[in-house]
Design a protein around this nucleic acid. Structure first.
Length: 860
RNA sequence: GCCGCCGUAGCUCAGUGGUAGAGCGCAUCCUUGGUAAGGCUGAGGUCGGCAGUUCAAUCCUGCCCGGCGGCACCA
């Protein structure tokens, strides 16, 4: 019996696939296409288990679809610009370009070891000048169309990374990468007008029926579309300068206008600033608001605070009704107009505020069943459905019609209009970094901002950038900036900002259609391959990357560069790879390799391998360097082989959930690999007698066809772990029908089973599968073989075992031929002596026979 | 606070309106020329709780409890 040796077998098959160019994607009009893409990696230089899982998941789909006759595109590239390279430059004095390409070389080798069915001929990195030059080309097209603009903006400044961050990249007031507290600065910044697509970005979510509901909801929340009314309150007295035309407010509840109690403005509203200039108390109050923390916890618990400005405005529907103007700390300047009208009875924030400052609370929405004469709200605002009352022309209307009526009246009065407001802001893409895609514009003293002409692209990064210190290496470069204006020829300076790396990753999927195209996107190739049929990656990109990619796709489609308006028809978000953590008594984290676990009964104990010191077993957490709970893929490949590692990360958890890495688990996968090989190795060359059958052969054949059906369905529905669980079970079935002493019929059934089995495990353990396929004489390479099919008739048992219940409790079982008629089964059951014994002394009320499933006797 | 997901063996997870399963772990035994390995057998479950629908609920419905995630003064 030859032992399975992955160290020999796995490289052998990888070489064979490469020689056969087995994974080259071809635009074959005779086949349906399938584009599988995993989110491309940042080339950190080291593969981690998260990558193994991500790419193994995609590879299952790619190999499966190929076997199902699809023309598959499964490419790989590198998200290669970004700060880590500059940090490495500062810390270790290496220059980013060399560092990055070295890392890519290392990671490519590791990825290739995974045996992925990737078309490596399409590989590129976003830091290749051929790639970012094309990015500059489409950026300039967007610039011409007004989708790119520059303005002075208060930006999120990360003091550690010394760069600007988009709103999406600020989490809890801290930089998403550095974790440093973000400061506000005013800078001239480049923006992409994503808000112009805000409506489409919300509306088109409805088409994405193969996206997780959760991600669609997150995007919808992030875009935050609300419909309402924007209108002006006019001052009762003389208007202040900063609000000469009145105070413009935005509301989603124009139906509650007759419940207005006051008008509130944000502390940084221009009007508040003007008031502060002449009113020291107001200035002090605004200063007080500024001090309040920005963290979620602080905002949540912050008390509502306000300052009465003494100004009065007129109610839009009643010139004799005056409302006070307050500055309030809970009003945000960067949403809507930075000013509101408050209806305390129907808004909790307004109510809290009104109760504190003793302002009127006037209900105008009457909940069903309440008495209009006595109805009042206590400490809880009423936001449910109801009928409008105490509201003149709105009286008696339901909420929605009342909103429409109020908007119509305001519009008729010329005081404002219905409006849609978004939470989404334009995308700030300027980064003051040297290791990024240069923004291809030139600043000319006469002509202003001028795009670099197409024939002068790419604007390449100089090779001699000096990255040794913080700040922008491009800005420091002696010659990069100096150029002439393409329009007037005068001396001019180049823009030194580079693009956010999220720009790089917002169109790479389209470039894969033809990475050598002379234009950004090869339209014909993209028309064949796009959209991505299955995109796979982490949930952490639910908003940022996926929203940007959707926007850029739509913008490029409007340029005529793409035909599709959504980049990813199917999205799958996989879970993380986790591991137990280990700590010494002194709090020091220990790597799994330094710890030995013993188990007695159900008690587990951990000790240090070296000293025997007792170790505390901590929580199961995402693998991270800081907690040392990582396992290096390379080391696992060395010991167990790539297939065992792939199998384990796929088998132990549903793909969307976290998977816990354990040494026991990967050993289990390894044992499975070996047991599979043993089973194939024990099959004699004699193929048996395919025409014959007997009881054992029939049973095995039925199990085989059931297996094919189940595994196929499991892959189709992304329940890979479930499919693998069945493969494990089936191996036990095979062992129960050994080749030794088998009848010719059973030998043939085993041959059929093994042939199917080899193909079914191929997406998960491709190297082992090839070896098995060769052993069973499959012919050719398995990567070229078709997916096994099943005979529906054989997915059902010929004889059914029917449990027999008496009053819902199981009391026995009988065997009946599949499809036996209820009357027949009932007779069999009642004739059964064991059942009869159970029924002694009882009167049978009813016998329920569910065909092929169960019998229940109701008796008393 | 709102929304979503999850709760099945010690652990990680399949599963189904009708006989509760797998891997690991655990225990007994066998093997000791696959050997820092292999094999046999076994124990272990109120399917989170309560109610409802049903002949029958782990599965469907409702409520509750617990865990995780996202959003959150967005007017």
């Amino acid at each position: 019996m030859a032992r399975y040796n992955p160290k020999e077998t796995e490289p052998k098959w990888r070489d064979a696939w490469a020689s056969a160019d087995a994974f080259r994607a071809r635009e074959d009009a005779s086949k349906p296409k399938y584009y599988v893409l995993e989110m491309f990696p940042y080339p950190s230089g080291r593969l981690h288990m998260g990558h193994v899982r991500n790419y193994a998941l995609g590879d299952v789909i790619a190999r499966y679809k190929r076997a199902r006759g699809f023309s598959v595109l499964h490419p790989m590239g590198w998200d290669a610009f970004g700060l880590p390279a500059e940090n490495a430059a500062m810390e270790r004095g290496v220059e980013p370009k060399g560092w990055t390409y070295d890392n890519i070389a290392r990671m490519r080798a590791e990825l290739k070891e995974l045996g992925l069915s990737i078309d490596w001929s399409r590989e590129f990195a976003t830091c290749d000048v051929e790639y970012y030059g094309q990015q500059q080309a489409w950026f300039l097209e967007l610039f011409k169309r007004g989708l790119v603009y520059r303005r002075e903006a208060t930006v999120n400044w990360d003091p550690v990374d010394q760069t600007v961050l988009a709103n999406e990249q600020v989490v809890d007031g801290k930089g998403w990468r550095s974790g440093a507290v973000v400061e506000k600065r005013k800078l001239s910044q480049w923006f992409l007008r994503i808000t112009q697509y805000a409506d489409q970005l919300v509306d088109d979510l409805a088409q994405l029926d193969r996206w997780p509901e959760k991600v669609r909801t997150m995007q919808e929340n992030w875009i935050g579309r609300s419909k309402g009314l924007r209108f002006r309150f006019h001052f009762a007295g003389e208007a202040p300068q900063a609000a000469a035309d009145g105070i413009e407010v935005y509301t989603t509840r124009p139906d509650t206008l007759f419940g207005a109690s006051f008008v509130g403005i944000a502390p940084d509203h221009p009007l508040a600033q003007e008031i502060a200039a002449r009113d020291p108390k107001a200035a002090a109050f605004i200063e007080e608001c500024r001090k309040g923390g920005a963290s979620e916890a602080e905002i949540e618990t912050a008390e509502k605070l306000g300052y009465d400005t003494g100004l009065k405005v007129k109610h839009p529907f009643d010139p004799n009704w005056e409302l006070p103007v307050w500055i309030a700390n809970f009003i945000l300047m960067d949403y809507g107009t930075g000013a509101i009208f408050a209806c305390p009875a129907h808004d909790q924030r307004d109510l809290d505020f009104a109760r504190k400052y003793d302002l009127p609370v006037r209900p105008v929405v009457l909940p069903p069943g309440e008495d209009p004469a006595s109805y009042d709200v206590g400490s809880e605002a009423y936001v449910g459905p109801g009928t409008i009352f105490r509201s003149q022309f709105l009286d008696g209307l339901e909420i929605e019609p009342a909103k429409e009526a109020a908007i119509a009246r305001i519009e008729a009065q010329n005081d404002g209009q219905g409006a849609t407001v978004f939470r989404l802001r334009d995308w700030g893409v300027s980064r003051q970094r040297g290791w990024g895609c240069p923004i291809p514009v030139i600043h000319c003293g006469k002509c202003g901002v001028v795009g670099v002409p197409r024939d002068q692209l790419p604007v390449a990064l100089p090779d001699d950038l000096e990255f040794g210190k913080p700040g922008n290496a491009l800005e420091r470069h002696p010659t990069f900036k100096h150029t002439t204006c393409p329009q007037c020829g005068a001396e001019a300076s180049r823009e030194t900002d580079t693009l956010d790396t999220f720009v790089d990753s917002s169109w790479y999927f389209a470039r894969f259609a033809n990475p050598n195209a002379a234009d950004p996107v090869d339209k014909a190739a993209a028309d064949y391959w796009m959209s991505v049929d299955q995109y796979i990656g982490g949930i952490e990109h639910a908003v940022l990357h996926l929203l940007y990619a959707r926007f850029v796709t739509k913008a490029l489609a409007d340029e005529g560069m793409l035909s599709v308006r959504e980049p990813f028809a199917g999205l799958f978000t996989q879970g993380m790879v986790t591991h137990e953590t280990y700590r010494r008594e002194n709090g020091e984290w220990l790597e799994p390799g330094a710890v030995e676990i013993t188990a007695t009964g159900n008690k587990r104990e951990a000790k240090m391998v070296d000293t025997g010191e007792l170790v505390r077993i901590g929580d199961i957490e995402k693998m991270s360097k800081s907690k040392k709970n990582t396992v290096a893929p390379g080391e696992i490949f060395d010991v167990y082989g790539v297939d065992a590692a792939r199998l384990f990360v796929l088998s132990d958890s549903p793909p969307e959930r976290d998977v816990q890495w354990t040494s026991g688990g990967v050993q289990g996968a390894w044992r499975f690999v070996n047991r599979v090989w043993d089973e194939f190795d024990s099959q004699p060359a004699d193929a048996g007698a395919a025409g014959e059958t007997d009881e054992a052969a029939d049973a095995l054949r039925r199990a085989t066809h059931k297996l094919v059906k189940h595994v196929t369905e499991a892959i189709e529905s992304f329940r890979f772990n479930s499919g693998i669980a069945r493969l494990y079970e089936f191996l036990n079935t095979l062992k129960a029908h050994p080749a030794e002493g088998a009848s010719p019929a059973l030998l043939a059934a085993r041959h059929e089973a093994l042939s199917a089995f080899a193909r079914l495990i191929a997406p998960f353990t491709p190297h082992l599968a090839e070896e098995c396929w060769a052993r069973v004489g499959g012919g050719g390479m398995l990567v070229e073989a078709e997916w096994p099919t099943f005979d529906p008739a054989l997915t059902e048992d010929a004889v059914k075992v029917l449990p027999v219940q008496v009053n819902g409790k199981r009391r026995g079982e009988i065997s009946a031929p599949a499809g036996a008629e209820p009357a027949e089964v009932e007779k069999m059951v009642l004739d059964d002596p064991e059942i009869a014994r159970r029924l002694e002394g009882l009167t049978i009320r009813k016998v329920i026979v569910v065909k092929d499933r169960i019998v229940n006797i109701v008796a008393a």
